[in-house]
Every structure is written in C-alpha cells, then in structure tokens.
Design a protein around this nucleic acid. Structure first.
Ligand code: FES
Ligand code: FES
Lengths: 132, 132
DNA sequence: AAGAATGATACCATGTTAGTCTCATTTGTC
DNA sequence: GACAAATGAGACTAACATGGTATCATTCTT
C-alpha cells in the first residue's frame, strides 16, 4: 500500500533538480545523466508535468524545461493526483456497483475521516519543503 | 490507492456476520449464501483468519467457524496486515536497494508522520465499531 | 463407512505498473 | 535550407499483483 508510485517519485526528483538549477533550461538528457532514470520513462513524466502546467517546455536545440511556478506553489498532492489519480482510500467493493450501504456504512465513515486527515497533510507538503 | 483490498473487505463482512450470530458455529456454506462471496475465495480467507487466531475452526459434519476472541479485541489494522502485509506508506524506490538518503530524506520524514497518524486511527477501529 | 466440513496448495485470468520504442514536430545553428 | 537537437504523442510490452478457481488430503460426526 504505497502513497507514492514511481512516476510521482521520479517527478519529485526531477523537480528538485530543476529548482536547484533555477533559471537554466534543463533538458531531459541533463536529468537522465544526473538522476539515472530511464530516459523514455523520464520523458513521459516531464511531458505530463508540462501538460499540467507545472513545467514549461522549450523545443529544439538548447531546449528543455523550466519550472512554470514557484516551488512553494507545487503541492505534493497535485503530483500524486497527476500520476496516480485522486487520492481515495475508501473505495467500496460491493459488487462493483454503487454500494447499497454507502449512506450507512460505518467503515466508509471511518476511512473517510482518515482520508481527510491524509489529504490535509499532503496539502501541506510542497516542493520547497522537499528541497532541504 | 486503496487502504483495504478485497480479501480484507470480505473478511470484515464475514466477521460481522459471525459476530451477529454469536455462539452458533458458522460454516463457509452459510456465509456463501448470505454474503454472496465466491466460495473458494471465501474459504481461503476463513482459513487465514483461523491461522491468525481470529477464528476457531471445527472440521467435519456440523463444523465451521467461531470467533476466537471478542469483537473489540480484533483491530482493523490486524485484518489489513493479515491480508495485505504491513501498512507502509513510505517505501522508497531508489534502485531497489536500501536508499542512500534514508537518513536524511525529507519526504520520508513527512510520509512517516502521515503513516503514524493513519496507523493510530486504524488501531482505534475494531470489529465492534463496525457492527452498527 | 459415508458424508460434510476444513486444510493446504497449485493454478489461472485479468489488470496495473514500470518501462520501451517509434515517429512526428519544433527550433536553433551553420 | 539542411541538419541536428530537443520535445510531443502515443502505441507497445514484460513483469508483477490481484482476485478468483480447482483439487486433493484430512478430520470429524453419525
Ligand atoms: S460496504 Fe459499501 S460503502 Fe461500505
Ligand atoms: S529518497 Fe530514499 S528514502 Fe527518500
């Protein structure tokens, strides 16, 4: 049961590197040799970060990526949702249909509470807070 | 990202049924027709609960299962760990080896804190609290 | 001895995760 | 303009996890 999968993890590392070299345009190649992440995989991740407006991309020779917003505006929870979908700890299994107990289910209630706590914490973690 | 998988979910339903019919020995067949869980799958789950000392089993004609301890002594977290392994939200991916940053990693620190909170909550939920 | 139950365990189908590959497009430099 | 260096888009794949099935052995009651 992992809160963070590999895509998210790599995204975090890439972002940290990019923020540590602010102002310079960083290419996928730079990141590959620095972070030792498989090239194609990393490229997919960078593209996604670009689409989400977290990075800005520049094509062509000398191109690469720049941060599109300040590090303290990038929340961990946004990265998680970008690569793993909504944080949802409390999906009910009942026959794959909408669960008939949804309104009254005690377990659902309790897990919802836990989810809210986790979400609150995840929203407090930004890329700045990971830069050490 | 689910906190509870299908095995655990089924285990909870089975336990609730068993506790609602305390004293009677409940066979897998009873549970199958009541809960509409695939027979073989449910049997595997019941066996595991037995091995873990949460249920007591009786073989032979008229056999089945009884709760081995009171409902308020069965913690949700125990069920989760029985079927899904230790709750561990903060596994680091770094090259599948022990991570060189383990001591200093800021992210690890923050996720550890979240994990502790979740664990604390999960320990407060028992089967009693799910019986409504 | 027969039948009803669980114990143990191997097997299988499907979905998810992590990763690869190819080709198209854009851009800077000569 | 040609070419090389970069990203964009998206199909494809290998390995693993999840959810479920099937089989045979063992035990217990009658
Ligand atoms: S059983 Fe469906 S929401 Fe709880
Ligand atoms: S990078 Fe390995 S524990 Fe954080």
């Amino acid at each position: 049961m992992k809160l963070i999968n590999r895509d998210t993890d790599y995204a975090i590392r890439a972002l940290c590197y990019i923020f540590k070299h602010k102002k310079k345009v960083i290419s996928a190649s730079d990141l590959v040799s620095e972070l030792r992440i498989p090239r194609s995989f990393l490229r997919k991740i960078l593209q996604k970060l670009n689409k989400k407006g977290i990075l800005k991309s520049f094509k062509g020779q000398g191109g690469g990526f720049l941060a599109a917003k300040p590090a303290d505006k990038i929340l961990l929870v946004d990265l998680i949702e970008t690569f793993q979908g909504k944080v949802s700890l409390n999906e009910c299994f009942f026959r794959k249909l909408t669960c008939p107990h949804k309104r009254t289910c005690v377990l659902r209630d309790k897990l919802d509470k836990i989810e809210k706590q986790v979400l609150k914490e995840l929203k407090r973690i930004t890329v700045v807070s990971l830069l050490r």
